[in-house]
Design a protein around this nucleic acid. Sequence first.
DNA 1: GCAGATACGTTTAAGGTATATACAGTTCTG
DNA 2: CAGAACTGTATATACCTTAAACGTATCTGC
Lengths: 243, 243
Amino acid sequence: MAKEKPRDLRAGVALLWGEQDQPTRGPKPSLTTQRIAAAAVVIADADGLDAVSMSKVAAEFDVSAMALYRYVPGKAELVELMVESVLADAPDLSAAGDGWRQRITEWARRSAAVHRAHPWLLAATAMRRQLMGPNQLGWLDSALAALEPTGLSAAEQHRVFVLVAGLVRTLVQQDLDFDEQHSREWSRLTDELLERHADRFPTLTRAIAAGAFAPDPVDPLEFGLARMLDGVQLLLHPDDAAG
Amino acid sequence: MAKEKPRDLRAGVALLWGEQDQPTRGPKPSLTTQRIAAAAVVIADADGLDAVSMSKVAAEFDVSAMALYRYVPGKAELVELMVESVLADAPDLSAAGDGWRQRITEWARRSAAVHRAHPWLLAATAMRRQLMGPNQLGWLDSALAALEPTGLSAAEQHRVFVLVAGLVRTLVQQDLDFDEQHSREWSRLTDELLERHADRFPTLTRAIAAGAFAPDPVDPLEFGLARMLDGVQLLLHPDDAAG
DNA sequence: GCAGATACGTTTAAGGTATATACAGTTCTG
DNA sequence: CAGAACTGTATATACCTTAAACGTATCTGC
C-alpha cells in the first residue's frame, strides 16, 4: 500500500468500465474481475480493508497471488473495482416524494446505509487519485437529479452535492469509530485527565459536565441534513423561514 | 499498517500526555518522542504518510529502527504523536470578532489551513480507534468556546461542532485530491465515455454541459460554512431570515 | 567504591506485504 | 499442425512491522 506506482489512467478506466477487448487465443481465464472484486469485498467486510491482500484474495480461488495480476494491474485498481462492486444499483429516489429536499435526503440516507454496510468504503474512496467507474457515476447522477428541481445553477448544484456527500462521509465515520467498550474506557481515562487539566480546557470541561458527549438520541445525519438543507433553502428563498 | 495489535490504552494515553515517569537508571536516552514525531512529520509532509516507516524515521537519527521502540510502542502511537505535534497551538479566536459565527468560521479556516499544510493529517485522524492528546483537545475546546455564545444546549453545540469539523475535512480532502494534470486527463477520458453512455447518466451529462464541473471561483469552504451556519442560525432564531 | 539492577541501542530473524520476471502449459489461428 | 498468444505458477526482490536476545552504559544502595 505504500509505494506509488506510475498509473496508466487509460488502462484503469478501461478496466473499471469493462471496456477491454477479450483475447481469443490462449486458455480461458478461470476468473473474472467481478468475482475477484466480490471476494475482496467479502474479506474487507469481515476484516477491514487492510486485511485484503493479493494472496488472501487469491486463496479464495485456490490460485497463486500472481494470478490476480492477469486480471488487475495492481492493488489500487482492485480497490477501485471493490468500490464499483459495492455501488452497483444507484438509488431510485422517485419514491421518496416530489420535493428536492425529500429526494436528496433519501439519497443521503441510502448512501449512508451503503457506507455503514461496508465500513472500508470510506477509506477506499478517501484514497487520492481515485478513478470513478460507472456505478459511482450513477450515484452522482442520481444526486444531481435530486437537486435539479432546486433551480440552482449547475455550479451551485455541484457545490451542494459536495456538501451533502461530505456530510454523509463525516457522520458515517463518526458512527463507525464508535466502539462501546473502547469509548467507555477512553472516557474514563479522559475524565480523569481532564479533571487534572481543567484549567487548560475550560469550555470542554464545562461541556462534558453539561452532557455534550453523553449518548444523543438525535440522529446526527438527520440533524446535519436538516441544518444544511435549511441553509440551501435559504439560498433559494432568502425571505422565508425554513420549515 | 495491516495487523491490529491489542493496544494498551492507558499506556497510549500516558505517552500522548507526556505523563510517563522518567527512569533514573540506565543510559540517558538519545532521543525524545517529540523529536521522533517531528522527524516523522517532515517525512510525511514530503512524501506522504505511507512513506513514514520506522526505519526511515530512525535513519534521521542514525539509529536502528528498533531503537524507536524504546520510545514508542508501535507505529499507531507514532502517528498519534505526529498528530499532536502538528496540532500544537490551538487557535486563539478572540481576534476574529465577537459573534459565534465569525469565531467558528475562523476556527474552520485555521483548521483547514493546518490540514492543507499537512496533507497526511486527514488520513492520520481518519484511523479508527484513535486517541486524542492534549493538543487535539485544545482545538476541540476552542471550537466549543466559539459555539458557547449561541446559547444552544451542550448536546446541540457538540452536534454543530461535528458538522463543522466534518465540513472542513471533506472540503480539504477535495482540495488535496485535486491534481491539475491528473484531473485534466481524467476529464478527457470521462467526457469521451459519457458521450458514449449519455443515456445512462442523463443528469450528469446535462450538468457537465452546464459547467457544473468547471473551475469554480467560489471557495467551497466559505460556501459550505455559509450554508451550514445559516442553518444553525435558523435553529436559534426560527423567524428571521439569515443575513 | 563497587555489585546489581535497569534501561538503551543493536543484531538477528520471523512473518507480513506488493509485485517483477522467467517459465510451463494450454488454446486458438493461420 | 506449427507458432503465437495467453493463463497460471514458481521464484525472487524489496519493502514493511516488530519480537527476542544480547552487549553495554548508567545509576542506586550498600
